[in-house]
Amino acid sequence: MKIALSSFLFFFLATISNAQEFKTPVDYLNYIGKETEIITRSTWKYTTTVAHTKNARRIDATRKSLVKSIQNASKKIETLKDGYKGDVEYKNQMLAYLSISEKQINQEYEKIINMQEVAEQSYDYMEAYIMARDLVNEKINAEVEKLNANQKIFANKYNIQIGEDTSELAKKMKISNEVFENHTQLYLIFFKVNFTELGLLKAIENNDMSGIQQNSNALEQYANEGLEKLKTFKAYKNDMSLVLATKKSLEFSKKEALELSPSVVSFMMLNQKFQESKKTMDSKSASSRSKEEIDNFNKLVNEVNKEVGNYNKTLNKFNTERSNTINNWTVTGENFIAKYVPID
């Protein structure tokens, strides 16, 4: 599952000024803006790397580069001991923001990466992983709001007009967040059903009729719940490709619950009956077996031989369709992200 770093630094980025002795408050904002712009670019590089590559080392390298850019900015801003003519409130708020961002990206994201490794072991783990990831983003965004508010206080104090950040980079970050959020919502619907489906397949493999029934019931329930959610799901830019891929997956899983499971249980019961009959026949000598017993057993043998072929045919059919359905969802999801998250 790919991690989306929530965008931040949506604040004023003015023309760069190299002076550390500030003649005007605008010069002061420009200097800080130069440092934060570097962080924004590093953030975008990390975001687009997550979106367009599966290389874990490359992703982690860009994460570390982002952390380094935050550390460098903090060091430079810390040297502004007097802020702007003794006014240090905005500088201190910026340093607090950078400190929290560094901790979240460096430490918390490392924990999240570890959670990701076990996320697919259960739906609860996957949900916890996504919630933890979103919580980190919420914390960073909360600090951004504080920072923006403090910047406005500074600007109002010195009669500076600050508009919204309408840069291309800010737009790209906003788009990427929306795309990842849309993908994540559909993935959770897909994963919950897919994970239950794996439980059903394991029960079939173990000839566990009770487990088959339990997982089959859950599979039908979750598929129906997911299909209901899709009816009101708002697709990104009205692109229904991933919604339809999710729907197709849920419909197939529901078919497994309603068609495959009863077929498997029926065959298992027949095979169980055959094994019991064979055990009874084997316990008797040839001379003590009645003609009726022999006829019934032979009839059962023929029935099992016939159903084995049908059973294997049914399993192969569902296995092929399942593989195609899952692959379709995965590819569609990757294409969805690649299509809408800008590359650079």
Rank of each mutant, 00 (worst) to 15 (best):
R57D: 15
K111C: 03
L300P: 06
T280I: 00
E145G: 06
M126G: 13
L300D: 09
N55D: 15
T79Q: 13
E78I: 00
E168G: 12
I77P: 06
I175R: 11
F336E: 01
V304Y: 10
Q104A: 12
S17W: 00
D82Y: 14
M131T: 11
L66N: 03
Y46W: 13
N137L: 10
A96E: 15
Y340N: 06
D27P: 03
K54Q: 08
N316M: 01
F274W: 05
A155L: 13
K81I: 12
I3M: 06
N302H: 11
V136A: 15
E138M: 05
G83C: 05
F11H: 04
V243H: 07
E205F: 12
F8E: 07
A245Q: 11
N271G: 00
N217C: 07
Q213Y: 09
L5P: 06
K45Q: 12
L13C: 06
S283Y: 03
E127G: 00
T36A: 04
M115W: 12
F297Y: 14
V50L: 14
N106G: 09
E251C: 05
I326K: 07
E178C: 02
V193R: 12
A142S: 11
W44R: 06
F154H: 10
K284I: 00
N156R: 10
S69R: 05
V67T: 12
A286D: 15
N224H: 01
N194R: 13
F191V: 05
E120Q: 13
E303W: 02
V301W: 03
Q185W: 05
N224P: 00
I59F: 11
D87F: 09
M173G: 15
K279P: 00
A119S: 08
M1F: 04
T47Y: 07
L188F: 08
K75Q: 08
K255M: 08
A61T: 14
S167V: 03
A56N: 11
N106T: 01
T47L: 10
S249L: 13
L244Q: 09
A119F: 04
L5E: 05
E102I: 09
M1D: 06
S210W: 02
E256S: 11
I100H: 10
K255N: 15
A14C: 01
S69H: 05
S241V: 13
I160F: 04
D134S: 04
M115Y: 13
L198Q: 12
E78Y: 04
F336I: 02
D87W: 08
P262Q: 06
Y236K: 02
E138Y: 09
F12C: 02
I189D: 07
T15E: 05
L258Q: 15
K54S: 09
M115I: 03
D124E: 10
L80Y: 04
K54L: 08
S261E: 14
T314R: 11
